[in-house]
């Protein structure tokens, strides 16, 4: 317990240090840092469903997009202030996941991945034809003028907002990792049938995991919409966003707390720097790196590191499905 307390303390201290440090950064590295923080949140969102539950969602950008569009519609069409729209959008994205989740989560593996890909594409098409979202022409988030609008806060404020969100996501995943809920997710990942017979309510647990991951992605989407000011179906539902989430978590280490953070720092820095130095070859280099990376290291960087003895549930669950399952059975007193 003392160790956990120390970790929370260290996390809070690091967050405060990063918040103070951001103020000292020039605009370009600040932009890179902001996008790293956005992807820490998005990667943790994917990590919950793809890493802990073992359901590789390829449609995670849908929740990001739904959150972003919800914020844009509420501020532009309904007249909400941004701070009222933010929690509403997060809740809406989670509710959306709770609706689409049950049919999707009946599938597994490849079928689940592609069905979620289709779900995201379908959601984008839906947003593009609805009147309230402005269709393909996009929607502008009001940031000045009369009424209860929230003024555009500037780059540093967005850095802080994304930092706060990243810290919250990290805390959520750290809590999840040690909780009964996280244990149930790991049991599902190790062997769903066995988990079910051990008393885990699999469907409810999976849908809850998807909704929690959508809550994080939706909040990030709402912030992103506000930051971008103008939202389009193609920018909010960009498939590259999903790819980055998947790649970051897989490279960093699935089902771990720190892995996605490391992955996000490495990849987003790489993406931003590549874009600055080789903008023409940019669309080729990242996917080529992915291909080479998967061929050379099919299990990601995290698997190169030895799992420390006693790392227990913080390690790679897939390596010890039996142990995880037995642990679950014991904890559920069966």
């Amino acid at each position: 317990m003392e160790k956990t307390g120390r970790r929370w303390l260290a996390g809070s201290a690091a967050t405060i240090a990063l918040a103070a440090g951001g103020a000292a950064l020039p605009s370009q590295p600040l932009g890179t840092a902001t996008s790293v923080l956005l992807f820490v949140t998005l990667a943790q969102s994917w990590n919950i469903i793809g890493g802990f539950a073992g359901y590789p969602s390829f449609g995670q950008v849908a929740f990001f997009g739904v959150g972003g569009y919800c914020a844009a519609v509420l501020t532009a069409q309904v007249g909400f202030s941004f701070w009222a729209a933010l929690p509403a959008s997060a809740a809406f994205a989670a509710a959306f996941a709770a609706v689409v989740g049950p049919p999707l989560l009946r599938l597994r593996g490849n079928a689940f991945s592609i069905a979620t890909l289709g779900m995201a594409a379908g959601t984008r098409e839906l947003v593009a034809i609805l009147g309230v979202t402005g269709g393909g022409a996009g929607l502008t988030v009001p940031t000045f003028g009369p009424g209860p609008h929230t003024a555009y806060p500037g780059a540093l404020a967005f850095y802080w907002a994304y930092l706060a969100l990243a810290a919250v996501s990290l805390a959520v995943v750290a809590w999840l990792s040690a909780s009964r809920f996280g244990l149930a997710l790991r049991a599902i990942r190790a062997d769903e049938t066995a988990a079910e017979s051990a008393g885990v309510a699999t469907t409810r647990t999976k849908v809850a995991a998807l909704a929690l991951s959508a809550l994080l992605a939706g909040t990030a989407g709402a912030l992103f919409a506000f930051q971008q000011v103008v939202v389009f179906p193609d920018s909010m539902f960009d498939i590259t966003t999903t790819t980055l989430m998947v790649v970051i978590v897989v490279v960093g280490g699935r089902g771990t707390v720190a892995g996605p953070v490391v992955g996000a720092v490495v990849f987003e820095t790489l993406v931003t720097e590549l874009h600055l130095f080789a903008s023409r070859l940019d669309p080729l280099i990242l996917p080529a790196l992915i291909v080479v990376g998967v061929v050379l290291l099919p299990d990601g960087v995290a698997h190169l590191l030895p799992v420390p003895p006693g790392a227990g549930r913080g390690g790679t669950p897939r390596a010890r499905p039996r142990a995880v399952l037995l642990d679950a059975v014991r904890r559920y007193r069966l």
Binding site: N110, P287, A288, L289, I290, V291, V294, P298, D299
Partner: peptide, 15 residues
Amino acid sequence: TEMASLILFFGVSQV
């Protein structure tokens, strides 16, 4: 294998 192949072919697709 499944996960690695999805990511790999996603990469090939983008290339």
